[in-house]
Design a protein around this nucleic acid. Structure first.
Length: 297
DNA sequence: CGCGCAACCTGTCTGC
DNA sequence: TGCAGACAGGTTGCGC
């Protein structure tokens, strides 16, 4: 579910309420959450620690602790982090994730705070994970699987040119691969390609300078729009307050099969790329020619 | 090294 | 009503 805009929305909501708080108790109710670590190991590493910062890298959320360790949480498809303030919540945005009893079907972990509040992790599909790592372990973990932050200074046209140069697979797959640009998932990949007027099946290697710039801009604009709207809630996504985002009301192509392109009126089509549903406008997003083969000098 | 696909899970919806 | 099958925001591991 959550891509960069959704995770960053949650981070911004958690930061002011969590920084400075001490985590008094932790209950891991589903061993899948802390896997491969045992629930007791996870709980023991976190209980009694103060949260000194709330960060994000790609789609990972990070709670930095006062002992140099970091709690890293990935929501995957259906995970949610819900903050229950000390006074409690009287009008839940989604009853399922607010069920207070630990027997609640999808409550997987609960962190109680020293101000009486709680942080809850819920996840119907059980793909979400949390682990504790020190700085060196964290650097190594991210270095081997994450690329450039799209909303940071390193996501330049030149960076896009370099990372896409040898890509012979579809642009859609390239955007989903977190080793290039991080934070883009199935929704924002479709939206970014549409904004860039690039066909999802065009290859990275077939792009020229103008396309590098268009795709860089398309990714940034799609993600920033998502952030402005508090993320996209197709089904499960809720922010830390249990509220939905509204990006789903402004999708340009994603999930709009059979509807008219806002730019040209052509019918939006759906195809499958890399096993993922992919939506685009066949008129606005024209496939690029493959680059000419290199010839011997 | 890059690519394509199955696998990991559960829930919901569609069509017969 | 029941049931099979498709599909869902992500990532990893495997074979090629």
């Amino acid at each position: 579910m959550p891509e960069l805009p959704e995770v960053e929305t949650i981070r911004r909501q958690l930061e002011p309420d969590l920084v400075g708080r001490t985590i008094e108790t932790v209950e891991v109710l589903d061993p899948y959450f802390s896997k491969p670590a045992l629930p007791r190991e996870f709980e023991g590493a976190v209980e009694g620690r103060e949260i000194v910062d709330v960060g994000r890298r790609g789609k990972y959320l990070m709670l930095e602790l006062d002992d140099g360790n970091t709690v890293v949480i990935h929501l995957r498809m259906t995970g949610a982090l819900i903050l229950i303030d000390p006074e409690g919540v009287e009008n839940p945005g989604d009853a399922r994730i607010y069920e207070p009893d630990t027997g609640s079907k999808h409550l997987k972990a609960r962190f109680t705070l020293d101000d009486g509040g709680e942080l809850r992790f819920t996840d119907p599909r059980r793909f979400g994970r949390g682990f504790v790592a020190n700085q060196d372990e964290l650097d190594e973990y991210f270095a081997s699987r994450l690329g450039v932050e799209p909303l940071g200074p390193d996501f330049t046209v030149e960076a896009m040119a370099v990372m896409s140069a040898n890509r012979t697979g579809p642009l859609k797959s390239f955007l989903l691969n977190q080793k290039g640009v991080v934070g883009v998932g199935n929704i924002y990949a479709d939206e970014a390609l549409y904004r860039a007027r690039l066909h999802p099946l065009s290859t990275g290697a077939s792009m020229k300078a103008e396309h590098h710039e268009a795709l860089r801009d398309g990714v940034v604009e799609a993600l920033e729009r998502g952030l402005d709207l508090g993320g996209a809630s197709i089904d499960d996504y809720r922010d830390a307050k249990g509220e939905t985002g509204s990006m789903q009301n402004e999708f340009l192509v994603h999930r709009r099969e059979g509807e008219a392109c806002h730019n040209c009126g052509e019918t939006i089509v759906r195809i499958v790329v890399g096993g993922r549903s992919t939506y685009y406008c066949p008129n606005c997003q024209v496939k690029l020619r493959k680059p000419p083969k290199k010839r011997k000098a």
